[in-house]
Simulated scan of single mutants.
Amino acid sequence: MDTTATIIFIVAAFSLGILIIMQRNNIPASLRRGLAIAAIVFIAFAFFLIVYSLTTMGS
């Protein structure tokens, strides 16, 4: 498993979530729901990657 790509994805997913939270008033209403759902999916997958990497760390 490529750890560099995984770390970059995790940082990008959390950055997207933070960006959406900080700029929620400037995002048009038509895009707000779609961006929020995409951010939730990316952050959930990032958490999965973190847990997966922790469980396979010893092997």
Rank of each mutant, 00 (worst) to 15 (best):
M1N: 08
D2H: 04
D2A: 09
D2Y: 07
T3P: 00
T3K: 09
T3V: 08
T3C: 14
T3G: 02
T4I: 10
T4S: 13
T4F: 13
A5K: 10
T6R: 09
I7E: 11
I7M: 07
I8W: 05
I8D: 14
I8M: 08
F9L: 02
F9I: 00
F9E: 13
F9A: 11
F9R: 07
I10H: 08
I10N: 04
I10F: 11
I10C: 07
V11L: 15
V11Q: 10
V11K: 09
V11P: 00
V11S: 08
V11T: 00
A12G: 01
A12Q: 10
A13N: 06
A13R: 01
F14G: 01
F14W: 12
F14M: 05
S15G: 15
L16K: 10
G17I: 04
G17S: 12
G17H: 10
G17T: 04
I18E: 12
I18Q: 07
I18S: 06
L19Q: 07
L19E: 10
I20G: 02
I20K: 02
I21T: 08
I21L: 12
I21Y: 15
I21R: 08
I21C: 00
M22Q: 10
M22K: 12
M22C: 03
R24C: 09
N25V: 02
N25D: 13
N25G: 05
N26P: 02
N26R: 10
N26V: 03
N26W: 08
N26F: 07
P28K: 14
P28N: 14
P28T: 07
P28M: 14
P28L: 14
A29R: 05
A29V: 03
A29H: 04
A29M: 04
S30Q: 10
S30H: 08
S30F: 14
L31N: 11
L31R: 08
L31P: 00
R32P: 00
R33L: 12
R33F: 13
R33H: 04
R33I: 04
R33D: 10
G34P: 00
G34Y: 09
G34I: 06
L35R: 00
L35D: 07
L35C: 06
L35W: 14
A36L: 08
A36C: 01
A36E: 03
I37Y: 12
A38Y: 11
A38T: 03
A39Y: 09
I40A: 15
I40W: 15
I40Q: 06
V41Q: 02
V41A: 15
V41Y: 11
V41R: 04
I43G: 05
I43A: 10
I43H: 01
A44L: 13
A44D: 04
F45C: 04
A46S: 14
A46N: 05
A46M: 09
A46G: 02
A46R: 02
A46V: 02
F47N: 01
L49G: 01
L49T: 01
I50G: 03
I50K: 03
I50D: 05
I50L: 15
V51D: 06
V51N: 02
V51W: 14
V51S: 01
V51Y: 13
Y52T: 00
Y52M: 05
Y52D: 14
S53W: 12
L54K: 02
T55I: 11
T55Y: 11
T55S: 10
T55C: 03
T56M: 09
T56E: 12
T56D: 12
M57F: 15
M57S: 03
M57V: 01
M57T: 00
G58Y: 11
G58I: 01
S59H: 14
S59C: 07
S59M: 13
S59G: 12
